[in-house]
Design a protein around this nucleic acid. Structure first.
Lengths: 115, 115
DNA sequence: GTCGTACTACGATGGTTGTCAAACTACGAG
DNA sequence: CTCGTAGTTTGACAACCATCGTAGTACGAC
């Protein structure tokens, strides 16, 4: 059984792409969904230790799981288990290194749109 | 019958969104396709007066038409008729005004990926 | 151990998308 | 007018995607 570095046993492997293998198209289509944009925006505003359930998304739990997985597999977020909760954080530095200015531009645009 | 300002009669209306109504998600998903990214990259590299056919895209004519329309309706490009040819140009300034840094970041990333 | 919480996995469904071929339209040249 | 070129439109199809409900798993608390 694999152990995560936070000390808890995870029933499933969470595979994140290496920074150098993050694909531009995957990131763009990951960000091209309103629900996922909300998640990314919330993570950027300091809610790094939020569990999935605390986002109050307008979709069901299974749909949430789906969106978080899309973001993770695209390389936009990192997820790790902590007890029964799954914490998420933005891969800000990784994305900035690979696609300079991209994430910031998207976040600025979305923040402007919201008022 | 509507006349375009280039002097030729167009059989169909080409509706472009106003700059202020360009939606972030539409732009992101328009750019999240390899064929469309190729088009945008080519337009940015100075082929502004290219007709659709000169892009040598790896898809059929009708698929080309489809992709150009998606880009136009998202507000990424502008199209106008000139004889039988349909010329396209990037709405660089419009996009920069609405989503500062976004297009540049995407173009840089894609150019880097292509070597 | 049992219970509750948080999330995942599976299966289904309706909608969107990328693709094509075939038929059509608009323009310019001869 | 006829022909060729450039692009559109339509209809089709398969693949994908966002969504859901239900059932299941992993963990912490008790």
């Amino acid at each position: 059984m694999p152990k995560s570095d936070s000390g808890t046993v995870s029933g499933r492997r969470l595979d994140h792409p290496e920074t150098s293998r993050i694909r531009l198209e995957a990131v763009l289509s990951a960000l091209a969904d309103p629900v996922r944009l909300s998640i990314v925006l919330a993570l950027d505003e300091g809610h790094e230790d939020m569990a999935c359930v605390s986002f109050a998304l307008p979709v069901s739990k299974s749909t949430s799981t789906h969106h978080f997985r899309v973001l993770r597999e695209a390389g936009v977020i990192r997820q790790y288990y902590e007890g029964t909760a799954r914490k998420s954080s933005l891969r800000t530095a990784d994305l900035e290194g690979r696609f300079p200015g991209l994430l910031a531009a998207v976040l600025d645009a979305e923040r402007a749109r919201r008022g």
